[in-house]
Design a protein around this nucleic acid. Structure first.
Length: 502
DNA sequence: TTCCGACAGTGGGGTCGCAAT
DNA sequence: ATTGCGACCCCACTATCGGAA
């Protein structure tokens, strides 16, 4: 298939907002691509590369050569060049990667260049990623979307499933089953503002820890560990591998959290856990496992079993210190006490899990609900950045500061663009245009007078901001035009809230 | 006809490894 | 030795479409 056809399909998908039309366009494109190139089309139109990452980021995409006048590039040739770029490493490799990329772009026409650059930047914005792609595969192969979705969750790969579906139909998809050693998409949780809203009848409650999600595959002596995105991190967490190997499980797939704990059992800040899990040289150690689910145990698949059955299996499989603390209740006061216990021990909150639902991998369903307390501060807007994509033409990303009573100035604590409705976006664009004091084309500096109420999950040490503190997951609740900047929260309040010296 | 679940989009801070400076 | 870049951990929230009720 010519890249030009793919680029044209992308253009068409971008230009319609109807999902069914997007699905139909992509399905047609999949049928046009032969069996060789269909997996590439699936990857590209879902905004991914089969190589995953090739070492090309935004800064490498800046300069483009003159476009070729006529299309000649095939989809498989693009794939070959991407592999070549990925393979480049060692001294001089950055320049080498860029040379290869430039040569590829020189072979492409204008629309093809546009597609390639947007693909590599992760910026296709065609309103079709995995969800729509799954529908399109189903449509192209003439099988139910649910069958495709399930195969994707079990196989962890869209393109592998697409190939099977297009060549072998529903029958080929039934060959994708749970297999020890091959990670599945993890089940995700939605969130609720309070226990009252989340607790519906009898449910399991578990601590919610601020660690790294991990899926462990055990087969006799062999233990492998995967992250939420199915990256393998076995070699980075030898202490966890050893601990699980020592249990002598015959075969198992476990789901849980890895976290760095202090001697007193309280959690380290997330930054410590993250650093330990990211260090490849190994040997740092110090991560503890808290498993909360089991998808397979001793030859028996459990992921379609209800939560209660999997809970019992987990108790059989693991000793208590390796399991996430858990209780089962239908009573609000009991749930509140459990949440208070989790918070008192320094954890984020709790998860509420329905006892009846199976492990619905890869979906953020209503089966699991997280509840975390929310902190708020009244901060002052110091500057605003221009938005992009659908926020183009607006002032979107807010720079937030706390008042410094000693200097009369403000200490920046981070940015946020979250929580804004279109109406708020329109209002703030107008408001901050009126308060503008400087404009570098991207960031508009404003008179620091507008107060905004910000919700956030916690404070962390920051090497970036002047106060040595940054907000975690800040989002806008509402503008406080009833307050003046002199009434905003001070940096002293924020420091006291942090509970540590920056 | 209205409601609601799923999806895509818009980005946030921090850390590591590697290559370039 | 330091800096810059890419990748990947953690993540919240709104708008929209289209099927369910």
């Amino acid at each position: 298939m010519l890249l030009a056809e793919l680029a044209a399909a992308w253009r068409a998908v971008s230009e319609t907002s109807a999902r069914r039309e997007k699905t139909a366009l992509i399905a047609a494109c999949l049928r046009d691509a032969g069996p060789e190139e269909a997996p590439l089309v699936v990857h590209y139109l879902a905004g991914e590369l089969p190589q995953r990452q090739i070492g090309i980021g935004p800064s490498a995409l800046g300069d483009r050569p003159t476009a070729s006048p006529s299309p000649g590039l095939s989809v498989s040739r693009v794939d070959a060049v991407f592999s070549e770029i990925k393979a480049a490493s060692g001294p001089g490799s950055v320049a080498g990667k860029r040379r290869l990329l430039r040569a590829l772009l020189a072979e492409a026409t204008g629309p093809e260049q546009e597609f390639l650059v947007r693909l590599l930047a992760g910026d296709l914005r065609q309103g079709a990623l995995e969800g729509v792609m799954t529908e399109a595969i189903a449509k192209a192969a003439g099988i139910p979307a649910a069958a495709v979705r399930r195969a994707v969750m079990l196989r962890g790969s869209l393109s592998a499933v697409a190939v099977a579906a297009l060549s072998g139909g529903a029958e080929a998809l039934s060959a994708f089953t749970l297999r020890v050693g091959r990670p599945v998409r993890p089940m995700l949780a939605s969130s609720a503002p309070s226990l009252e809203e989340a607790l519906k009848g009898e449910m399991a409650l578990e601590w919610k820890m601020d660690g790294i999600r991990a899926q462990l595959h055990v087969e006799g002596e062999q233990v492998r560990v995967f992250t939420r995105t199915l990256e393998e991190i076995t070699s980075r967490v030898p202490e966890v591998v050893e601990r699980v190997r020592a249990l002598g499980l015959r075969s198992a797939i476990l789901d849980g959290e890895l976290i760095a704990l202090r001697e007193d059992g309280r959690p380290h800040p997330f930054q410590v856990t993250s650093a330990r899990a990211a260090t490849r040289s190994g040997g740092i150690g110090g991560l503890s496992l808290f498993a909360f689910d089991v998808l397979h145990l001793d030859g028996v698949d459990l992921l379609d079993e209800p939560g209660s059955v999997r809970g019992e299996a987990l108790v059989r499989a693991l000793p208590e210190p390796l399991r996430m603390p858990r209780t089962v209740t239908a009573e609000l006061p009991e749930a509140e006490a459990f949440l208070a216990g989790a918070l008192a021990r320094g954890h984020e909150g709790v998860l509420l899990k329905s006892l009846g639902t199976p492990y619905t991998a890869g979906r953020r369903g209503a089966g699991w609900i997280k509840v975390k307390p929310r902190h708020t501060l009244d901060l002052v807007v110091l500057a605003v950045e221009r938005g992009s994509g659908r926020r183009r033409g607006t002032l979107s990303n807010l720079h937030l500061g706390a008042r410094d009573p000693r200097t009369g100035g403000f200490v920046m604590l981070g940015k946020t663009f979250k929580g804004l409705t279109d109406r708020m976006l329109a209002w703030q664009t107008e408001r901050f245009t009126g308060l503008k004091t400087a404009d570098d084309g991207w960031t508009v500096t404003v008179r620091p007078v507008q107060v905004v109420e910000i919700a956030f999950d916690g404070l962390q040490r920051s090497p970036r901001y002047p106060g040595g503190l940054a907000l975690r997951f800040a989002r806008v609740l509402r503008y406080r035009s009833d307050k003046t900047a002199e009434e905003a929260d001070t940096i002293d309040t924020v420091r006291a809230l942090a509970g540590f010296e920056p």
